[in-house]
Computed example of a mutant assay.
Amino acid sequence: MTIGEHLSEWGGLPTHQFPDRHTDAATQAAAVRDLPAADEVAWRIGVESYDPEETWTEAFARFLDTVDPGQVRALVVGCWPDAYDSGPEEIFAAIVAARDRLPALRALFVGDIVMEECEISWINQGEVGTLLDAFPVLEHFGVRGGQNLVFPAVEHKNLRKLTVEAGGLPVEVVRGVAASELPALVDLELWLGTPEYGGDSEVADLAPILAGDRLPNLERLALRNSEMQDAVCAAVASAPVVARLRELDLSMGVLTDDGVAALLGGQPLTHLKSLDLHHNYVSTEIGARLTETLTPAGVALNLDTDDADSDEDGETVWRFVAVGE
């Protein structure tokens, strides 16, 4: 599976594409006239990946001069020219330079790019700590693409949701997130990925997250899209952070009966509101055991195999994470 649709919402607001620049004055005026209020949507700013009419920073400058930036609550960075070859350093600099004009900004996503624009593992990223430092009141932050992604250990007192999507997360990114001080964080989602696309972390790198000491308010933990999903499950089975979670998401990875057996043999999960294991390689038998354990307690369990093949006979020829290249 690849990512074929842009985000439909971010920061609790529906996304809205800021219109392209039109050479025809009447068309341009009509596009501006029909815009929603600045605080009603998450503004998606993106340009064509190939031979765009303007650069991303030019589109952003138009945006700041068109809407009331002081009312903007959510911003989504879409595609920039040649994202498979160029990083977003100029984009980051432009956003940071505009921080005083964006006092209401509470949600930011970088890299809402679909496969027709650039495959997820080809997206070049940058040092996202500069954005978090520049917006200390930010509450939702997300980034897509692991190539050249840098996420140093940060301290952010207001961040409530952090999402990092990749076909493979570099180990230094995982360690940076794990070492960050995020006392307000409620929702953490990491797409760990596969070594083929740069995902070289190991379960031990997740230890600070699973201990939960720096995440006192965490309610949802998603460790998704991992080739080492069975080992992740074994670690989660005894992780202290699990006791305070409401939602646990271990979906989209190479999950087999071994991983489910580890969950069944570990700490109780009956306090959870939901457990998401969709896209898996789990046999009907052990899936039924998990269902019988959790469903009577009111846990919403998702064992949908999606486009993965269930492991009925203990053998599956092809096993892939849901999102790779």
Rank of each mutant, 00 (worst) to 15 (best):
V41T: 10
E181F: 01
C233P: 00
E196Y: 08
V260I: 14
S274C: 04
A234T: 13
E165C: 07
W56E: 04
T27L: 15
L7G: 06
P52S: 02
R44I: 07
E325C: 10
D311H: 09
T2Q: 13
V203I: 15
N225R: 03
L264G: 11
V323T: 14
A25N: 02
A134T: 06
H6E: 01
V236H: 06
P216F: 15
E53Q: 14
L138M: 03
D82T: 11
E139K: 05
E181N: 08
A288G: 05
T163Q: 12
V150G: 01
E181P: 00
E219T: 13
D307N: 13
L185H: 07
S49T: 13
L7R: 08
V77P: 08
N217P: 00
P19K: 05
V232F: 06
W318M: 09
F135D: 00
H156G: 04
H278R: 10
T305Y: 11
D257C: 04
A98V: 01
E285V: 11
L169K: 02
F63M: 09
W43Y: 08
V76W: 02
A166C: 12
R73C: 12
W318I: 14
K273V: 14
G126Y: 10
F320E: 09
D51P: 00
V143T: 07
E117F: 05
A29W: 00
L13H: 06
H279W: 14
V186Q: 13
D309Y: 07
D213P: 00
E202R: 11
L190M: 02
V174Y: 02
L264Y: 02
D20T: 07
S283P: 08
L108N: 04
L190N: 03
S180T: 03
N158V: 05
L188Y: 03
L169G: 03
S238V: 15
D311V: 06
T316E: 09
N158R: 15
V96Q: 04
T66K: 06
V282S: 05
P52K: 00
G146L: 09
E58N: 08
A211W: 01
G4Y: 12
F151A: 10
L255I: 07
I209T: 06
V137T: 15
V241M: 00
D307G: 06
L206Y: 09
L190Q: 03
V143L: 06
R244E: 03
V177R: 04
F141S: 07
M115R: 09
L250A: 10
D39G: 05
T163A: 12
G46M: 10
R246N: 13
T316R: 15
Q71A: 15
R33Y: 07
L159A: 09
L206A: 10
V177E: 07
C233A: 13
T270I: 11
A61I: 00
R160Y: 05
D205M: 02
A134Y: 11
A243S: 12
L149E: 07
D306I: 01
W318A: 11
P240I: 09
F92L: 14
S251T: 01
L303Q: 08
V76H: 01
V137F: 12
D65Q: 15
V128T: 08
W191C: 02
A59Q: 15
R289N: 12
E219P: 00
C118S: 14
